[in-house]
Design a protein around this nucleic acid. Structure first.
Length: 491
RNA sequence: GGUCUCGUGGCCGAGUGGCUAGGCAUCGGUCUGCAAAACCGGGUACAGCGGUUCGAAUCCGCUCGAGACCUCCA
């Protein structure tokens, strides 16, 4: 494959040509969800973004190992003083169930949502609780290098010590001195030497259920540890791309870089990719603000801000309509536009089946094909790709209308273009028809009525013909007359 | 307060020095018994002010506005 793919590297703040460590292979790590609640629209963004990335690289012939974790321990609800309660444990306590019940429930829900969005399952989906040993081992390495210290059974990363040797803040563009000045410090309430330090291992309080033995204490790992430990385990000490939401740049990814560098002497990921946020009324959609809409609510329309239900494919298309590094503002209008646009695209793709090749072409599909690759090679520019695909739709419809002609080779390429880019790469699938299928009794009844309407039309009995059409339309049957009959579908 | 990002037509959303992005909506036309779909065509843009330039939405400065991160958040 001769494609040069450029991706924006947060580390350098530039688009860089992607060069794999091992030719033909891509090692990708993406931060997955903390499973203590239902997935919302914001969770769909990185999932779809990095799904697009893996699908594209696979299309280009790469063998991709995609690791996306499930965080099921160690994510503290309040890390101001490093004394917060674990999010999973907190939810379990509030609901009086086992933490693992919480984890199981929301992991299942997350998987269901991802399947609905046609997000491919990653190659490996490791869990923090399944890698306590690896995390402890890495903590030992960091301790042995002198970049961490133990206090009362907890282990903290010594950011100041680290910063003497390595630049802390290189990913987020922060200076440690500024961080120190700007961080709210609660004197005397923290075991940490400095407010910028973060927990690698936390000693569990007596009532804390989630705990594992270690030489420091019965406790649990700090949030940032899992990604460093698990990416190392499955992708090695150096791998190609690390991805996640922009809100994770600081402190999570900065901490990961520090941990890996402290333990191994170098950074783990070569390219850092970050998707931007989904906003609602111009504000970030997030758990803490409580302004989120869950994916299940979107699929069913059960949220006060939703005018109707939106299908998973509409949501996927909506996300792909914007470039991943820009914010996307939620609105019914935008979602509705996405729904219609998707419909137009899918109809265009289906329509290629009805086209008959001519001896010569008046359209240049090859040029369009090339532009599709160009769009993706330029930092996964899905909106530009979609613009090209709508050009394909225009060509398709013009062919159908007889305004243009295409030869057999061109037609084959046109069909391949749709299949490769719409289905394989963008992951957009035709929506399953709800309700009556053409073979159902109701479908047969609809066709019976429409055939009666044809008879009425032939007799120029417009009143009867229109009456049948209007009533069927009211019932949600969309009717299109064609030269030699009719087409119909359920709305 | 610090660091950073962004402000494009009715809505969404690309572009980043000169050549129509695209979608949705809207208007006119073709087709159709009428409609729908489709096709053809039209209109309304680059927050404001100043500067650089032969030429700026695109570069620079200022002003206004919005947002992100600095605590957990995809």
């Amino acid at each position: 494959m001769q494609h040069k793919v450029f991706i924006y590297n947060t580390l350098t703040r530039k688009k860089e040509e992607f060069i794999p460590i091992h030719p033909g292979h891509l090692g990708l790590y993406v931060c997955g969800p903390t499973v203590y609640g239902e997935a919302h629209l914001g969770h769909a963004r990185p999932a779809v973004t990095f799904d697009l990335l893996t699908r594209y690289f696979e299309h280009l012939g790469y063998k991709v190992r995609y690791v996306r974790n499930i965080t099921d321990v160690g994510h503290l609800a309040d890390e101001v003083a490093g004394e917060g309660e674990d999010k999973i444990a907190r939810k379990a306590r509030l609901e009086q169930v086992e933490p693992m019940e919480i984890v199981h429930r929301y992991t299942e829900s997350y998987h269901d949502n991802m399947r609905a969005l046609n997000v491919k399952s990653p190659s490996i989906e490791p869990r923090a609780t399944g890698h306590i040993i690896e995390q402890q081992q890495m903590i030992r390495e960091i301790l042995s290098q002198g970049f961490a210290y133990e206090v009362n059974g907890s282990v903290y990363f010594d950011v100041f010590k680290y910063n003497e040797k390595y630049p802390y803040g290189k990913l987020s563009g922060r200076k440690l001195e500024e961080l120190y000045e700007n961080t709210r410090t609660l004197d005397g309430q923290s075991e940490k030497r400095n407010s910028a330090d973060f927990a690698l291992w936390k000693k569990a309080a007596p009532e804390h259920i989630m705990r594992w033995p270690s030489e420091w204490s019965d406790g649990f790992p700090g949030w940032h540890m899992e990604c460093s430990a698990m990416s190392t385990r499955y992708l090695g000490k150096t791998f190609d791309i690390h991805g996640g939401g922009m809100d994770l740049v600081f402190p999570h990814h900065e901490a990961e870089i520090a941990q890996s560098t402290a333990a191994h002497g170098h950074d783990a990921a070569r390219y850092w990719m970050h998707n931007n946020m989904i906003t609602i009324n111009g504000q970030k959609m997030g758990k803490s603000l409580g302004n989120f809409i869950t994916l299940n609510e979107l699929f069913t329309g059960s949220h006060s801000l939703l005018e109707k239900a939106y299908s998973p494919m509409t949501i996927r298309f909506f996300i792909l309509m914007a470039h991943y590094r820009g914010t996307v503002d939620f609105s019914n209008e935008a979602l509705l536009a996405a729904e219609k646009g998707l419909d137009r695209l899918m109809k265009g793709m289906e329509a290629t089946q009805k086209i008959i090749a001519s001896a010569k072409s008046t359209v240049d599909v090859a040029a369009l094909h090339h532009k599709c690759y160009q769009a993706l090679n330029d930092d996964l520019n899905s909106p530009v790709l979609l613009a090209q695909l709508f050009e394909a739709v225009k060509i398709t419809n013009s062919l159908l209308a007889g305004n243009e002609t295409i030869d057999a080779k061109g037609l084959e390429l046109l069909r391949k273009l749709y299949h490769d880019f719409v289905v394989d790469i963008l992951g957009l699938l035709p929506e399953a028809q709800s309700g009556a299928a053409k073979s159902d009794l109701s479908g047969q009844l609809i066709e019976l009525l429409l055939n009666l309407r044809i008879e009425a039309k032939n007799n120029k009995d417009w009143a009867t013909a229109d009456s049948i059409r209007n009533q069927l339309t009211q019932m949600g049957v969309v009717i299109k007359d064609t030269k030699d009959g009719f087409e119909w579908e359920l709305k």
